[in-house]
Simulated assay, not measured.
Amino acid sequence: MNKTIYDVAREAGVSMATVSRVLNGTAVVKEETKAKVLAAIELLGYRPNAVARGLASKRTKSIGVILPDVSDLFHAEILRGIEDIATMYQYHIILANSDAREAREIDLIGTMWEKQVDGLLFISEKITPDIVRTFEQAQLPVVLCATDDPEGRIPAVSIDNQSAARDAVDYFLEKGVRRIAYLGGPTAHPVTMERLKGYTAAFQAAGLPFDQELVLHADTLKYEDGYAQAKRFLDQGHTAEAVVAASDELALGYLNAVRDRGGKAPDDVLLLGFDNTRLSTMTRPELSVIAQPTYDLGAVSMRLLTKLLNDEQIDEYTVRLPHSIIERTSTQRNETAAEDPNR
């Protein structure tokens, strides 16, 4: 992998801005510091981007977007919102996939800095101290999208994940359902853990016992891992009346694990997904969901970034967009569901 300006800064123990000053001669730098930077450049074999250097200190009207997977339907819809607002304000997007790997995220932040983007929109599973330090070194305006900084240090746009999961459980409790499972992602994933907190809080508020047996953690939020975790759960003889899944794909994984055992939804299990991607209406039964305003997450994040870039008044640096429950046939045990031959 090519070395970036971030690698040079880390090796020399200085900020990326200092490395830029040495490369571009835009400001006086102490000889000792300059020597460290030049030594780091030689050691790493770093080759500066000549085009980016020529753009130093100028607006490029470009925005960097770093996200885990552009092929993921949830991220793709967010990107539509970002692009529409970026176009409105005459910015163009430089897009990069991080594969949800911290080392690659850090490398990409440096790469975006080299490209002289005016600001950065960042979508990630987890904001770590190393990520925050890299943001600080890059000295770029940053907005988190569908991502939270637990310390509240970075402007962010998301939903209230705890509240959403709590609403999901309450939805089933109001139907008289008590044995409700939670199918989430890995325990290191902050968003899925926020949803787990909301899930457990709902039982506590209702004065009902919490059954740890009904908490399932898939390796990712993807379909294959949801299926594998659901199959393991069912093969061990466990059952659930209803399932709150942390993504639409996890919910569909559980649905097909039930089907492969000869079961049906909603007859044998009620299923509630999370996100409201196109997948939720492409299956039978159609999937009830906690709907995130996916397009708006991207659009509002981009608009917040333009405010930062243009020194506009900002009323909220942490924005919580509303969620909703969309009820479809996967949670409806009624005549309409019974008439659907494709359930």
Score class of each variant (00 low, 15 high):
103 A>L: 12
280 S>Q: 01
330 S>W: 00
231 K>N: 09
167 D>C: 11
304 L>Q: 09
45 G>V: 08
267 D>R: 13
147 T>N: 00
176 G>C: 06
316 E>N: 14
72 D>P: 02
308 L>M: 08
232 R>T: 09
88 M>I: 13
76 A>T: 11
104 R>S: 14
185 G>Q: 10
27 A>V: 04
72 D>Y: 08
86 A>P: 02
4 T>H: 01
247 S>D: 07
13 G>V: 04
44 L>G: 00
83 E>C: 11
120 L>W: 11
234 L>Y: 09
265 A>P: 00
212 Q>F: 02
26 T>V: 10
144 L>I: 09
201 A>I: 08
21 R>I: 04
300 V>S: 02
133 R>K: 13
197 K>W: 02
15 S>N: 10
205 A>I: 04
15 S>Y: 07
60 T>H: 12
69 D>Y: 00
170 D>T: 15
87 T>S: 15
330 S>N: 02
20 S>R: 04
326 I>F: 05
150 P>A: 15
332 Q>M: 14
140 L>M: 14
256 N>S: 11
201 A>G: 02
56 A>W: 04
343 R>L: 12
323 H>Q: 08
29 V>N: 07
119 G>W: 08
231 K>A: 15
314 I>G: 09
310 N>C: 06
147 T>D: 00
14 V>H: 06
210 F>T: 07
206 A>M: 10
252 L>W: 01
133 R>L: 12
45 G>T: 09
177 V>L: 05
283 T>E: 03
233 F>A: 02
162 Q>K: 13
198 G>K: 01
90 Q>D: 13
80 R>F: 15
130 D>R: 14
28 V>K: 13
305 L>I: 07
156 A>H: 06
333 R>C: 11
226 G>Q: 03
238 H>K: 14
270 L>I: 02
9 A>N: 11
16 M>C: 01
175 K>I: 07
89 Y>M: 12
271 L>K: 04
156 A>Q: 13
166 R>W: 01
229 Q>D: 00
88 M>T: 14
216 L>Q: 08
290 I>M: 06
231 K>T: 07
22 V>Q: 01
106 I>V: 12
259 R>C: 03
307 K>P: 00
155 P>I: 11
308 L>A: 02
71 S>P: 01
30 K>V: 04
33 T>P: 02
153 R>Y: 11
26 T>P: 01
334 N>H: 10
294 T>C: 04
284 R>G: 03
258 V>L: 13
43 L>T: 11
251 A>M: 05
312 E>G: 11
6 Y>V: 03
194 E>S: 14
246 A>P: 02
66 I>K: 07
342 N>Y: 15
226 G>T: 03
87 T>R: 15
293 P>G: 05
294 T>R: 11
162 Q>N: 11
199 Y>I: 09
